[in-house]
């Protein structure tokens, strides 16, 4: 079926973009929960736990997201689980994002001066109270900019799930390309849609961090 690329093609891409957003949001929520736990354990946990988490972070940061995705999608199904593309996508994106976000948040927690811990100690606060009322509120403020910045990486990372045929924005572009054979127009539109999602986030992240900073990512 050959049709030409035009306004009639937009619904396909918009539908894909919606899934990109859903995937990004799910990943952010899941990775956020794990990252908070990991960041806290990385700072406060017993030594073996701290080492374990540090090892996890090192290992995942040295592995391509695509390999994690293939492991989840093709690999684990052989273990007797069937992983639909959505599940494989969320699981691998979460594993991946957690390794970076936990690291970012650990840095934010460690940036709070040790005197703040001691002042809370001297006021007889328990560890959960110190975290809840003194450390985490301050760490949260520092983390906002980098966290929003990382959200941009998550959105972009979701694009690789196209390679296990999960129909998000990039995959929608591929499908549309197969129908129209107008790859340049199609992928330019896809890129523009990513840009529309990501640029405001990047801008806000830089605003939160007070000026331009060098960011890094894939």
């Amino acid at each position: 079926m050959i049709q030409s690329f035009g306004f009639s093609s937009l619904p396909i891409l918009l539908h894909g973009a919606l899934w990109t957003l859903i995937l990004s949001a799910s990943t952010f929520v899941a990775a956020g929960i794990f990252s908070l736990i990991f960041a806290l354990l990385r700072v406060l946990g017993p030594r073996p736990v701290r080492l374990l988490i540090a090892g996890y972070i090192e290992l995942v940061q040295a592995t391509p997201l695509l390999i994690l995705l293939f492991l989840a999608y093709y690999g684990l199904s052989f273990l007797g689980y069937y992983f639909p593309p959505l599940a494989a996508a969320v699981i691998s994106l979460t594993l991946y994002a957690t390794a970076f976000l936990a690291d970012i948040w650990r840095g934010c927690i460690e940036a709070i001066p040790k005197q703040q811990w001691e002042a809370a100690d001297a006021l007889a606060m328990s560890t959960p109270q110190k975290l809840r009322y003194v450390i985490l509120p301050q760490a949260f403020r520092i983390s906002l900019g980098p966290t929003v910045g990382f959200l941009v990486q998550i959105v972009k990372n979701t694009s690789v799930t196209a390679l296990i045929s999960f129909v998000e924005l990039t995959r929608a572009g591929q499908l549309l390309n197969n129908m129209t054979f107008q790859p340049f127009e199609v992928f330019l539109t896809v890129a523009a849609m990513y840009f529309i999602i990501c640029y405001p986030l990047s801008y806000y992240s830089e605003y939160l961090q007070g000026g331009k900073r060098a960011r890094s990512s894939t």
Partner: peptide, 11 residues
């Protein structure tokens, strides 16, 4: 920086 590498590769 605001578009995925994969899309850049396709482009």
């Amino acid at each position: 920086r605001n578009t995925p590498l994969l899309v850049q590769v396709f482009l």
